[in-house]
């Protein structure tokens, strides 16, 4: 420690140590300055999610299978089989993210959450197709653990390799550039002013979705007090961090824009029960259409599923985010132009 310096050449003994001290100190300071670039979140790679593909030209755009409360799992599988089977969407070794409605402390018969039988069959199908990692994501506004238990999602994944995730911490999110996916012109040639803009809304997605290969949206059909309906398109608001800005800058254009960026591989809409009033949390009037609808185009599916909302008689042209998404070219709002296959699940297909 206390090494006495020789009187003859004091500088030479100190030089190396001094150099190391200065170099180390400036590296530390410089590193700390550099770290300010990564203050809150890292930069994400572009999404890996496989774009949705039809099995063949003759495959229907929308498959709606009706069943009864005992066969909710079976009609889910039947609807996916009509689209070409789960292997069409989930490849071997895929990291699959499923996004069902499960963030409310509501029982399945209150129709605010996806039915556990549908979730369970979907997870089983993904396991059968060889998915390497299955994550069920919903950003719960209620206490997430209670919500997952009460709505039945906790039991639905019991015995499977799937895991539940409510990304409630900001550190679980990565910044993404949504604005790049939004066109400046609508299909009519009119100007469109994107709400996602570098100084307006900066959006973040959970790492699990950014790194996923296959993204399956599994919503339930609900009326929504603010957004009129909440089905597949509005469901993506359960996967993002910055939801406050959506309410501030207008809910409908923002929902349409996040759908331009995040394109699910498969949409399986659970219309076995529909919440008709006081959505999205309820409790409200519920009906039981006993139907599972599957497809790859969320705009078309949401337009089709409006027919289940019978109490308020909602039609697709009342829903602004469907209209905006249609004009931006995300999907088809006019159900008369779609190839729809409606099956009674009681009979073998």
């Amino acid at each position: 420690m206390a090494s006495e310096q020789k009187p003859g050449k004091p500088e030479q003994r100190a030089s190396r140590r001094q150099f190391l001290e200065i170099a180390g100190g400036s590296a530390l300071v410089g590193g700390l300055y550099g770290l300010t670039f990564f203050e809150h979140e890292g930069f994400a790679k572009p999404s890996h999610i496989r774009p949705p593909q039809k099995a063949s030209a003759s495959t229907p755009d929308i498959v709606a299978v009706q069943g009864n409360p005992a066969t909710y799992g079976d009609i889910t599988e039947q609807a996916i089989n009509e689209l070409g089977g789960i292997e069409q969407f989930v490849k071997k070794g895929d990291r699959v993210v499923i996004s069902p409605n499960m963030g409310w402390m509501r029982t399945p018969d209150q129709a605010a959450t996806t039915h556990p039988a549908v979730i369970r069959r979907l997870v089983k199908l993904c396991e059968r197709a060889g998915a390497s990692r299955i994550t069920l994501i919903d950003y719960a506004l209620d206490d997430w653990k209670l919500a997952f238990k009460i709505c039945g999602a906790y039991d639905a994944i019991r015995g499977t390799r799937a895991s539940l995730l409510s990304p409630t911490q900001p550190t679980m999110y990565k910044k993404v550039n949504v604005a790049a996916a939004v066109p400046n012109k609508t299909s009519d040639g009119a100007d469109y002013d994107p709400r996602h803009h570098y100084d307006r809304i900066q959006q973040r997605l959970p790492r699990d979705i950014i790194e996923a290969d296959c993204f399956i949206v599994n919503p339930v059909v609900k009326n929504h007090e603010a957004a009129v309906i909440t089905i597949a398109m509005k469901k993506l608001m359960g996967c993002i961090w910055n939801r406050k800005d959506y309410h501030r800058y207008g809910l409908h254009p923002c929902i349409a824009e996040i759908n331009m960026f995040l394109k699910p591989t498969l949409v399986v809409t659970d219309a076995t029960r529909a919440l008709q009033t006081r959505g999205p949390k309820g409790p409200g009037i519920t009906t039981t259409p006993n139907t599972v609808v599957a497809g790859i185009d969320p705009v078309a599916l949401d337009s089709y599923c409006c027919k289940f909302l019978t109490v308020e008689n909602i039609t697709p042209d009342q829903v602004q985010h469907l209209i905006i998404a249609n004009s931006l070219g995300r999907g088809q709002i006019d159900t008369s132009q779609l190839n729809i296959k409606e099956i009674d699940g009681a009979q073998p297909s």
């Binding site: 509501r106 029982t107 238990k149 009460i150 709505c151 906790y154 039991d155 995730l165 911490q169």
Partner: peptide
């Protein structure tokens, strides 16, 4: 509805902010 249907687990067990239950 604090208590779910009979099939679900009783919710009163524990509160864990660890977001990776499975």
């Amino acid at each position: 509805a604090l208590q779910g249907p009979a099939s679900t687990v009783s919710p009163g067990a524990d509160y864990n902010p660890d977001p990776h239950p499975g």
